[in-house]
Design a binder for these strands. Structure first.
Length: 755
DNA sequence: GAGCACTGC
């Protein structure tokens, strides 16, 4: 009998419940529900009830109204099927196209069957992006007629909108769940975990899939749903098969979108930007009213196309005012201030004269409009078939952005953007043959395109012993893993056997690249942890410098005022300190050509990192004397970034990176007033030529002193760099030999670096 | 004398 189930004790009137409206079989809509054996029919009845089963409060009129809208979602009509498949399986793969309602409805269905609130558990639903986690949680709280942050909540970096003991449905970013797994590898608080947007294959989702597959074997009480929008479900079904030769069950729901007619060019287009502009103008001249979405690859390209289209469209309108209406161009990319991003939701311009042809809006966007942002009213999509994609070269340890052809999946996603409100058209600026034969099926998952130093440290922290044999959905190149292990070993986060050191354990707790974490953790030894904390925060946010094309001189002059000639890292410190000294004032930022948004973010990151430091008793200290302070900071930088050092070669401004021997130049944004012989750099960027960016002068003695393993000269390739270091070493050894007590100046670091 | 696809902790 249901009432004998201890999980349902609180639903049993004889044993008494916590609710104020003491539940009876008559008024508790969940009375008689057996966890994970609930049927669609039972759930529908409960949904229609006048009482909210999770709060025992009467439903508001709003609830009924929203419920009627929910009933129209495709996923709603397959409720019986879902409850059956959920009852019968531990792992389910679900495919739901756009508009199916999967993200909002499936987690609620799960709650009605899993009844997490009766066993002190939670249902988690992960999202790749913060905004999605927040906005979906808000929507679902409304649908369930509860207050956001109570029964339904969300958890993202910087904001935990949940109430322990009350929240049983939690939306969260995939990265956040990964963090939680580091402290609780069994993820005991969850009864069901739903991975949404799995087809996007973010680094965090990929790692979670591997962890959860293994965890599901240990925790047979844990249910797992992997939700994806495209038809690559078979890959996930195979990956998550529990029995040899079988695949995980598939639950499929159709979408609700309008048809999109796709057009191809007859011949390949040699200049896709020019072709795109031409196509937009053709649509404007010849097609029915309806807004246009054009995909380009980056800020510069977008701003350029905006200007050109504007000029041409104005010409067209002036030549033929009776048949061509006004056109507005709206750029869209992530570094645009939110206020300007909002412009994409503006209505199209009105006709120039009351009876004239209607106006049209064209949004020119990066990939941000492919997944993150949805613009209603788009009827025409222009897809040149390119995007900037991250690529990682493990040989030289460099991540860079490359304009590359998109995948078929991506092209389909783009086309779909034309059919959200009514039937649309998609103009692909490549041939049908190229689409069929040349484009990859799927975009390569992020795990194959990234530096994995961070990920490897996380995996080791998660207790994964054999990284090469970890059950990846797609295994990264062994060389990428080796590079990550090598870096972590040099940083003393891993010992020579690949085991996590105490230092590595603390590094993993910081939401930072390992180099930054290392530098922050050792900084108290140099008495400059306050300053390193600031520098690390500044390096973790987008570029703070604003340089409008029309005011380059003014912006450069303003930057000069804040520049510290010893190094760009010190300049970043100075910028933050001035920002605080000026009361974090937006006007001051504006006048100084600084991004108030980025500085605000740096402040936020700094506060979070400071809380982490306090947790591990890492002291926050400063040296008063500013000369000594600056030297100390530069020493601490070396402890994290000794693998990113360059040595000047000749007088032409060329540098060679240490060990890799890449020829690089100081980036023009660099504020150093001379060209020091030895520099440490934060980034290697490959644009018109190889540059190093965010650069600070260091002394070669520090390299030998603070990173002796890496600067073991017997491992160095022959060359001027090695000879220069050898000279420094000889000088140093000469001095040491003359010393009576033989004190080793390396002592304070060697202690740290071993374990 | 140049740039910053997009996320996430």
């Amino acid at each position: 009998m249901a009432t004998d189930n201890p999980y349902l004790a609180h639903l049993n009137p004889k044993k008494g419940g916590k609710s104020s409206a003491s539940p009876t079989p008559g008024n508790n809509p969940l009375y008689g529900f057996l966890p994970r054996r609930v049927t669609g029919e039972q759930a529908r009845k409960a949904l229609e009830s006048d009482v909210n089963p999770f709060t025992m409060q009467p439903h508001t009129p709003q609830y009924k109204k929203i419920l009627e809208a929910r009933k129209k979602l495709p996923v709603y009509s397959q409720m019986d099927e879902f409850f059956k498949i959920f009852s019968e399986n531990q792992i389910i793969v679900m495919v739901g196209e756009t508009g199916s309602g999967k993200t909002t409805q499936i987690p609620q269905f799960v709650c009605y069957s899993d009844l997490p609130h009766t066993k002190g558990k939670m249902v988690a639903c992960t999202q790749p992006r913060r905004v999605a986690a927040m906005s979906v949680a808000k929507r679902v709280a409304d649908e369930m007629d509860v207050q956001l942050g109570k029964q339904v909540g969300y958890s993202i970096r910087f904001e935990d909108m949940t109430e322990p003991g009350t929240t049983f449905l939690k939306y969260m970013t995939d990265g956040m769940l990964l963090r939680e797994a580091m402290n609780d590898p069994e993820l005991t608080r969850y009864s069901t975990i739903i991975l949404d947007e799995a087809h996007e294959r973010t680094l965090a989702t990929d790692i979670l899939m591997g962890l959860l597959k293994t965890l599901a074997k240990r925790r047979t009480d844990l249910k797992l749903i992997v939700m994806s929008a495209t038809l690559d479900a078979l890959k996930f079904q195979k990956y998550f098969s529990l029995k040899h030769g079988e695949v995980a069950p598939l639950f499929k729901v159709p979408g609700r979108t309008h048809p999109v007619e796709v057009f191809y060019t007859q011949e390949p287009e040699p200049d896709y930007v020019e072709a795109a502009i031409r196509t937009v103008l053709m649509i404007h001249r010849a097609e029915e009213p309806g807004d246009i979405l054009l995909f380009l690859t980056g800020e510069e390209e977008i701003e350029d196309a905006c200007r050109k289209i504007k000029i041409e469209a104005d010409d067209l309108m002036n030549q033929d005012p009776d048949s061509v209406g006004p056109l507005v161009c709206i750029p869209l990319y992530s570094s645009l201030p939110p206020q300007q991003q909002q412009r994409i939701f503006d209505p199209p311009p009105p006709p120039r004269t009351p009876d004239g042809p209607p106006g049209r809006k064209v949004v020119i966007s990066t990939n941000i409009a492919e997944t993150s942002l949805t613009i209603d009213g788009i009827v025409y999509v222009v897809d040149p078939g390119f995007s900037k994609q991250k690529v990682y070269n493990p040989r030289i340890r460099v991540e860079s952005l490359l304009v590359s052809p998109i995948s078929k999946a991506s092209a389909q996603q783009r086309a779909g953007r034309a059919g959200r409100t009514r039937p649309g058209k998609c103009f692909r600026l490549y041939t049908e043959r190229d689409f069929m034969k040349e484009l990859e099926e799927q975009t390569h998952p992020e795990i194959l395109r990234s530096n994995l130093a961070n990920t490897v440290l996380e995996l080791v922290k998660l207790g994964i012993k054999d990284l090469v044999r970890f059950d990846y959905v797609d295994a990264p190149a062994p060389e990428t893993l080796m590079r990550a292990l090598e870096l972590l070993n040099f940083l003393a986060a891993l010992d020579d056997d690949g085991n996590l050191t105490a230092l590595g354990g603390i590094m993993a707790e910081f939401p930072l690249d390992p180099q930054l974490a290392k530098m922050l953790i050792v900084s108290p030894e140099f008495k400059c942890s306050n300053e390193i904390l600031t520098i690390v925060a500044m390096l973790s946010v987008p570029n703070v410098w604003v340089r409008p094309p029309s005011q380059r001189k003014e912006a450069d002059a303003a930057k000069q005022m804040l520049t510290v000639p010893d190094g760009d890292h010190l300049t970043l410190l100075n910028v933050y300190n001035q920002y605080v000294a000026n009361g974090q004032d937006k006007n001051w930022c504006w006048q100084s050509y600084l991004s108030a948004r980025a500085l605000q973010q740096a402040d936020n990151v700094r506060a979070q990192l400071q809380r982490n430091m306090e947790k591990f008793d890492i002291d926050l200290v400063s040296i008063q004397d500013s000369n000594k302070l600056y030297t100390a900071i530069r020493m601490a930088l070396v402890c994290g970034f000794f693998m990113q050092v360059a040595h000047k070669e000749g007088e032409k401004g060329n540098y060679l990176t240490v060990k890799d021997n890449q020829v690089v130049a100081l980036h023009p944004s660099c504020g150093l007033d001379n060209q020091p012989e030895w520099v440490i750099f934060h980034e290697f960027v490959l644009t018109t030529r190889p540059y190093i960016r965010t650069v600070t002068e260091v002394r070669p003695e520090w390299l030998l002193e603070f990173a002796p393993q890496y600067f073991d000269l017997s491992t160095f390739p022959d060359g001027e760099t090695k000879r220069a270091l050898q000279r420094v070493l000889n000088k140093k050894q000469g001095k040491a030999a003359g010393r009576v007590d033989g004190t080793n100046s390396d002592k304070r670091m060697t202690k740290k670096q071993k374990r």
